[in-house]
Amino acid sequence: MLTPAEVVDEYYLEVRCKLLEIAAIMDRYDRSVQRGDGEALGDDPRLKQCRESLAVLNSPQEEPNRAEQIALVFSHPVPA
C-alpha cells in the first residue's frame, strides 16, 4: 500500500484534473441556463445528488468512506 506522501504524489494531478472537469461541467450548465436555452432544472434530483456529493467531498470524515457515501447518494433507497 502507498504512504500518504505517495498517494498525493501519485494522484495529485489526477484529482486536479477531475476537480476542474466537475467545475467545467457545472459552469456549462449555468451558462446554458443564462443563455435561456431551456428551463433551469433547479429541482432535478440528479442535480440534488451532485450537490449532496460535493458536500460529502468537502466534509471532515471520521472514517475514510467518502466514495461509499457518494455511491449511496446516487442509489435508490432499499424498500422497507
Binding site: L13, E14, R16, C17, L20, E21, A24, I25, D27, R28, R31
Partner: peptide
C-alpha cells in the same frame, strides 16, 4: 488524456 486540458473543457472555451 488526463492531468491538464481536456477536450470537453476545450469545447467549453470554444463556446465561450
Amino acid at each position: 488524456p488526463l492531468t491538464k486540458m481536456t477536450g470537453e473543457r476545450a469545447a467549453d472555451i470554444l463556446e465561450m
